[in-house]
Design a protein around this nucleic acid. Structure first.
Length: 413
RNA sequence: GGCCCGUUCGUCUAGUGGUCUAGGACGCGGGGCUUUCAUCCCCGAAAUCAUGGGUUCGACUCCCAUACGGGUCACCA
């Protein structure tokens, strides 16, 4: 039997990174099994419905390369189906009307159990602890608990990979399957990702979305790689992996049972790793895509900057500040007396310099450093306004004679 | 509070009865390289494997209890 899974977001906002990780696991599992993944919009909550949410959901999956079947299902378009199925339960006296809503009558004796694929463990709930739950709301829309089960069956879902927060509602789902005489899918409840506060990731606690990370200059490969390591480990010391490598070795049995804490520091480190692994051309493309205004930079200048920048940025967003000197058109820093003196004599040297290249430029600086017993920092401050940055001689070589001399002249007068 | 799940360095984790005086990664500290800052390289600190009982010739690994943490108790998903 072919594996079929689903990504069932509810369009109540932009999904945060925890939800996206669940989508990723669904994708990896499905690809590894040669199955099919569908996207099903669970828009049954009219009060919290956010029109733009679906667009963001699709955008995230697209950016990350999480592919699913072309036909997107929407529960709001399937109301008739839920109504029919509710009717069946009502006729069987398994559901009853309660204040305009339809409730499912849960059995009150015995127990409901299943073997969860995560950790391969049996989970049992005593039925006496379960309450009758609403399946059709008074507004005519189905609840998650109902629509989810009906759709999973009708759409031939074989594996339900979802967050651990759904464990306690799984007995409801199982009873519904039984009431209809349907076969159970495999349930796999992923441990939820916790934030720094050790609480479940949530918008309220500042959980970001994949789109936020993209906007902050993170690469999709890095985000994907970091996310997958949160709760999944193929064994051994392997950490850096491409999505295709993940698919090759992905197995539900390697998913942990403990809730991991999201460590943005390690994500940032990983992002830097990925940036460094990119070729110059690839990094250039990423930067052009990230910044809308890089066209202003001359292509040959841009090409020369890339290798200098590569080991110095952890996110694409850091590019601008680091390369500021190539974009500025006015000087906004001052020199103190000693620096001024050095600036003047350096300027003289620069004007006389025949070959404008990094070695000659560095030679000039070296002379001054030795004569005045100063450190390189002084030159960084002088030419860029900052005490650190891209290698100076290289930077000035790329900047060119005219612009470099301009900087010193405007500082001196 | 009831019910459910979990517990190895600060964090992500390896580990499936003896190879563990517990390995890797991030972060942190120190050093090297060096034109600043990075990158890179080397070294180091960091877990009495939550605690207490079992089982066993032998437990991080199996069982039980306790503690702690998390999830969930909606006409939200």
């Amino acid at each position: 039997m072919k594996v079929r899974t689903r990504i069932p977001p509810s369009p109540t906002g932009i999904p945060h990174i925890g939800n996206t990780r669940t989508a990723l696991f669904n994708y990896l599992f499905t690809k590894a099994q040669g199955g099919e993944l569908i996207l099903r919009i669970e828009d049954t909550d009219r009060a919290r419905f956010v029109p733009e949410a679906e667009k963001a959901i699709v955008e995230i999956l697209e950016w990350l390369g999480i592919k699913y079947s072309p036909k997107v299902e929407r529960q709001s378009e399937r109301l008739e189906i839920y109504k029919q199925h509710a009717e069946i339960l009502k006729n069987k006296k398994l559901a009853y009307t309660d204040q305009g809503a339809l409730r499912y009558r849960m059995p009150k004796t015995g127990s409901t159990k299943w073997t969860d694929a995560i950790g391969n463990k049996d989970i049992t709930f005593e039925n006496k602890t379960q309450e009758d739950f609403v399946i059709i709301k008074s507004d005519g829309f189905p609840t998650y608990n109902f629509a989810n089960v009906v759709d999973d069956h009708l759409m031939d879902i074989t594996h339900v990979l979802r967050g651990e927060e759904f464990i306690s509602s799984t007995p409801k789902h199982i009873q519904l399957y039984r009431a209809f005489g349907w076969e159970l899918p495999v349930f796999a409840h992923l441990p939820v990702i916790l934030g720094n506060d050790h609480q479940k990731l949530s918008k309220r606690h500042g959980a970001k979305s994949a789109l936020d990370y993209r906007d902050e200059g993170y690469l999709k490969d890095a985000l994907l790689n970091y996310m997958v390591l949160l709760g999944w480990n193929p064994g051994g010391d392997r950490e850096i992996m491409s999505i295709n490598e993940m698919i090759q070795i992905f197995d539900l049995k390697d998913i942990n049972t403990t809730s991991p804490i999201f460590d943005s520091l390690k994500l940032t480190w990983m992002n830097q790793e990925y940036i460094q692994k990119k070729t110059d051309a690839e990094l250039k493309d990423l930067l052009v895509e990230y910044y809308s205004d890089l066209k202003a930079l001359q292509s040959d200048v841009f090409d020369k900057i890339i290798p200098l920048v590569k080991t110095r940025i952890k996110t694409l967003a850091e590019f601008k500040e680091l390369t500021e000197i190539f974009f500025i058109n006015s000087i906004n820093w001052d020199l103190i007396d000693q620096e001024m003196e050095i600036a003047k004599s350096t300027l003289t040297d620069l004007k006389e310099l025949r070959d404008w290249n990094k070695d000659k430029l560095f030679a000039i600086m070296k002379v001054h450093m030795e004569r005045k017993k100063i450190k390189m920092k002084v030159f960084y401050k002088m030419f860029t306004g900052r005490e650190r940055g891209l290698p100076l001689p290289e930077t000035l070589e790329i900047l060119g004679r005219e612009k470099t001399i301009n900087i010193l002249e405007s500082l001196i007068k």
